[in-house]
Write a protein that binds this DNA or RNA. Structure first.
Length: 593
DNA sequence: AGCACGCCGACT
DNA sequence: GTCGGCGTGCTC
């Protein structure tokens, strides 16, 4: 007997081993195998009756039963192909922890799912979506798998749903028990992060994705695919019900709902807070707060309600202080990225580069500045203005009920229950809108809407901006999602962004300038030979003359983009560490940064 | 990803 | 003469 085994290595094919007599093995089982002089854990993806002449023998099985069903391996294979990653590396990111020491566990083999066609995915956007989920899962038939964007959210939801945890925030023994318990159908609800996407569940299963729009669902590293896409594919293949939760879904998911591939439950209007804009003209030069926001902080302090001030990290784009316009790429519509050291503006998508301008082309204004109100500056200014208030910009101050003013990025609003804040102030929304990325508007909209939900109907959202009529602000003020998505989809369609195409990012880290250039030229040449692609020209990232120069370029193509580039780029991606450098590819990047 | 083999500069 | 630098290729 021969077992084909994949490892957490960038190998395109499984490696074959002799199965020792008496060892019963099946696909999805973890094994210890000799590899390059050491013992490593791999996962069996196939067993054959062939002669094992000349092959090394497997050492042992890690568990007496498979951890993955054949159906889950197939989803892993699909994800690996779509993301141009190895199967072994992809699967390794979605397995339960290894047993430690002597364990006396009762382990169930994984169930194979049904292959019946299921309902289309559902999208819940209304304000009561989370409360409704908690109610519904309690009475749902079968097992429910809830995927959270991060460990913190997983912990919160496991508590709320009285569910077992599969994420790495829980002790390993408990995670293993939850994994095999869910496989056996013993658990009613399990909660995890992306590492739990392949836990086998007996049908009928319900799959849930929390905060569908959250970029944490596709962090760097394996599996290099958005959890939403994994779950949509899984639900389609096994006929599971899939529920996507988000007040502000990704534009991609909204578009699918427009096209009836996702069933969107329309939300009736609910009592909504005041969303007011405050004009920052002439203010932000010296002070971060307009009068309305100053008043609001004072009022909230009197009413003993906390205020959150949302700031951005550092400026990455250039804007006009007079009219608020950002310098944008005329072809791509995204804000041009500012490089101070090289004194130029460049487009992250097409690599167009301009010298630093001195005059705003829109209004002729001469006061051009990067957006400069980070948390630190806002804090010191606030302490001077409100010496009697308790002010904090510590990330964990989110949970401290005594802090009266919290300063932080949009992360402050993550997981905030309704009414957590009396007021949320956006110190400079324009800085969010100017981020050099075509998803800047989407992220600003999500943050504004999250702020409105976090202050509740009796609270207030104050948006300091020079663009009070921007569609993202208008949509939140009017509690009208349709307003935002209609405008955003028009913008995406006109300039040819997702969901109307697929993007892919090629990063090249050269050993030196010469090596980087050689690899860039080679990969560009390969890609330009493929019909149907738009290959943007490459640009150097980071400081000039860096030891390891980083070049990057974007590729735009149709839905079958991964299959179009996989074969031509194979050699380049495989021969990883070469004299000249390393080539890496990222399909469907969430950010062009 | 490791790790081992293989071909060019400064040492006990 | 060797020790060791990393570039290249392989791992069943």
């Amino acid at each position: 007997m021969i077992a084909d085994v994949v490892f957490d290595l960038p190998l395109r094919h499984p490696l074959s081993y002799r199965v020792p007599d008496g060892l019963a093995l099946g696909p999805g089982q973890r094994v210890r195998a000799p590899l390059a002089g050491r013992t490593r854990v791999g996962i069996v993806v196939g067993v054959r009756r062939d002669e094992a002449d000349g092959l090394k023998s497997l050492d042992s099985a890690v568990e007496p039963v498979p951890v993955l069903s054949a159906a889950m391996i197939e989803i892993g294979r699909w994800a690996a192909e779509e993301s141009l990653s190895s199967l072994g590396g992809t699967l390794a990111a979605m397995l339960p922890p290894l047993p430690r020491g002597d364990t006396r566990e009762s382990l169930a083999p994984p169930p194979e799912p049904s292959r019946a066609a299921g309902p289309p995915p559902e999208l819940w956007v209304d304000t009561r979506r989370e409360a409704r989920l908690a109610e519904r899962l309690g009475s749902e038939k079968g097992t429910s798998l809830v995927i959270a964007p991060d460990i913190e959210a997983a912990a919160r939801w496991a508590e709320r749903l009285d569910a077992a945890r599969l994420d790495s925030g829980a002790p390993e023994v408990a995670r293993r028990a939850a994994w095999f318990g869910a496989s056996r159908g013993r658990a009613r609800i399990v909660v995890g992060t992306r590492s739990a996407l392949l836990v086998p569940l007996p049908p009928p299963a319900t799959l849930v994705l929390l905060d569908e729009h959250d970029p944490a669902h596709k962090p760097p590293g394996a599996p290099r695919m958005h959890s939403r896409e994994m779950l949509v594919e899984r639900a389609r293949r096994e006929g599971s019900r899939l529920v996507l939760l988000s007040a502000t879904p990704s534009v991609e998911t909204w578009w699918r709902a427009d096209n009836r591939h996702v069933h969107r439950q329309d939300a009736a209007p609910v009592p909504w807070p005041e969303v007011v804009t405050a004009d920052t003209r002439g203010i932000l030069r010296n002070h971060p707060l307009t009068l309305p926001l100053t008043r609001a902080i004072e009022e909230m302090a009197r009413r003993d309600r906390p205020t959150a001030l949302v700031v951005t990290r550092e400026a990455a784009a250039l804007g006009c202080d007079e009219c608020g316009a950002a310098f944008r790429c005329p072809d791509c519509g995204v804000a041009l990225a500012l490089s101070r050291s090289e004194r130029r503006l460049s487009c992250r998508l097409c690599s167009r580069t301009d010298p630093l301008p001195t005059v705003c082309p829109g209004c002729g204004g001469h006061r051009l500045s990067p957006f400069g109100w980070g948390a630190e500056r806002v804090e010191s200014s606030l302490r001077k203005r409100f010496p009697q208030l308790s002010i904090s910009r510590a990330p964990d101050a989110r949970l401290d009920p005594h802090v009266q003013v919290l300063i932080g990025t949009t992360g402050l609003l993550r997981g905030a229950p309704p009414g957590r804040f009396g007021c949320v102030g956006f110190v400079a929304l324009d800085a969010l809108l100017r981020v050099p990325d075509f998803r800047a508007g989407e992220r600003a909209f999500a943050a504004l809407w999250a702020a409105a939900e976090a202050v509740g109907p009796n609270g207030r959202v104050i948006v300091q901006t020079l663009h009070p009529e921007h569609y993202a602000i208008r949509a939140v003020r009017e509690q009208s999602r349709a307003t935002f998505y209609a405008s955003e989809l028009t913008f995406r369609a006109e300039l040819g962004y997702p969901p109307f195409c697929r993007l892919c990012l090629l990063s090249i880290r050269g050993r030196d300038e010469e090596g980087a250039r050689a690899l860039v030229t080679e990969s560009e040449g390969i890609l330009r030979g493929i019909p149907g692609l738009t290959v943007y020209s490459a640009a150097a990232r980071g400081a000039a003359g860096a030891r390891r120069p980083l070049w990057r370029f974007a590729i735009k193509g149709p839905a079958e983009l991964p299959r179009l580039v996989a074969e031509p780029l194979r050699r380049l991606l495989e021969r990883r560490r070469r004299a000249s450098g390393v080539v890496e590819i990222e399909m469907d990047p969430l950010s062009l940064a």
